[in-house]
Simulated scan of single mutants.
Amino acid sequence: MRRILLAATVLATAALTVPLAAHDDEPAPARGVPVAVSVTPDQLLEPYYEALRQQVVMPVAGANPALSPSTTLTRIAFGSCNHQNAPQHMWAQIAAQNPQLFLMIGDNVYGDNGWDADAGLESLRASYALQASHPEFTGFRAKVPMMATWDDHDFGLNDAGGNFPFRRWAEDLFETFWASSDAVKARPGVYDSTITGPEGKRVQVILLDTRYFRSNLKRAPWSKERPPLGGYVPEYSLDATVLGEAQWAWLEQELAKPADVRIVVSSTQIITTAHQFEGWTNFPVERNRLFEALKGREASGLVLLSGDRHAGGVYTTQYKGETLWELTSSSLNLSFGSDNDRSTAREPDPARVGKFFSEENYGLVDIDWKAKKLTLTLKNNTSGNLAEQVYNW
């Protein structure tokens, strides 16, 4: 198995040039001269992965109740950045809030920790298996319907995008573990959407995939003094993408469907441009395209949710006369500290409302249908309120 795995890795990372027979009206290439062809690592590795599927146990998250399409949603919880090796205490806190739906929005496990560049992504598979062994998690999942998308650490590699050569196998692991819908399994990427509730109280949840198709990040020029807030700079190329054309077309179709409230989930932050870490700020043209798509949606209330940052906060911006609101929640159990004042001072941001909370947290979205009011709440690991934002749609 190890030899097969090594061979697959070499195939994926080798130059994709092979000798081919010429067309009838073209001279054949000289023997031994490589001819460039469009062969992707996904295609090269598919026979290996097909064999691997027959040999390994694919971890599963466990039983999960289906969300009835007729349910009138009034409370949705979400979170990100959950490490399989860390305590799983947050599940009890979230369950006590009685959410009707929970959204796992990225870095749901840290599968790239200990990865040795093998094409089989053994560390990712092991991380899922460990997460599935936690009774706190499986007990929560057995009671609360869940939907999921991924971020980099459960995609397979820190800050990775569409050039990650093993993304297809990472997708198989993700879709098997989270029991993805048939629609998700039928297409590349893990983006998904549902509409729940009766007419007049329909909630659409749109989970974007900001990894599978994303163009390469543009790194900041080297300097002796590294930037304190990340090492990337905006990529203004019109060819650069976050979602890929197929997902963009799908998103526009989803936004045209009738809904009363839409919850749009991105694993990375959307509104803020105050840092040089990962986020839509890396792709300004795409960020504007997203704002345009949201502006052109069929009339509805709107909530933006994001994670990734190991800190949380509330963000707002104006776009063509509409006020957009975003709640970032991160992380569930991998906090980088609890000094919220220090985190706030380190990252000044005119788009953020209030502090930047670096302690463990999760998010809630409450819907008051009678008042047409949305409440975004960020809670800590004892379910105390860190931040709250109320607005009408």
Results as ranks from 00 to 15, higher is better:
3 R>S: 15
171 E>K: 14
98 N>T: 11
158 N>K: 00
6 L>H: 14
380 N>Q: 07
139 G>T: 12
253 Q>R: 10
218 K>I: 07
219 R>S: 07
295 K>G: 14
8 A>M: 11
159 D>P: 06
344 T>L: 08
107 D>N: 06
265 V>L: 03
183 A>N: 12
359 E>Y: 08
217 L>H: 09
100 Q>Y: 05
328 T>G: 02
385 N>S: 13
163 N>V: 08
182 D>W: 01
112 D>N: 10
269 Q>Y: 08
143 K>D: 11
182 D>V: 15
247 Q>F: 07
18 V>K: 01
201 K>V: 04
290 L>G: 07
57 V>I: 13
325 W>I: 04
257 K>T: 00
54 Q>T: 13
274 A>Q: 13
104 M>D: 12
38 S>R: 15
36 A>L: 14
49 Y>K: 00
62 G>S: 08
76 I>E: 04
344 T>G: 12
128 Y>H: 02
326 E>S: 00
5 L>Q: 14
349 D>Y: 04
56 V>F: 02
316 T>N: 09
131 Q>A: 14
349 D>R: 01
13 T>E: 11
262 R>F: 05
332 L>S: 07
107 D>F: 03
18 V>L: 14
380 N>C: 08
109 V>F: 12
84 Q>T: 00
305 L>D: 12
218 K>T: 13
196 T>P: 05
360 E>A: 15
334 L>V: 13
262 R>V: 00
192 D>G: 09
345 A>H: 09
347 E>H: 13
77 A>N: 03
122 E>D: 15
334 L>R: 06
165 P>E: 11
363 G>F: 12
23 H>R: 15
58 M>C: 10
63 A>F: 11
194 T>C: 12
91 W>T: 03
260 D>E: 08
370 K>W: 05
272 T>S: 15
370 K>L: 11
164 F>C: 05
316 T>A: 13
74 T>I: 11
247 Q>T: 07
235 E>H: 14
328 T>E: 11
315 Y>A: 01
382 T>V: 14
384 G>M: 08
79 G>D: 07
372 K>I: 04
100 Q>W: 06
106 G>V: 06
270 I>H: 09
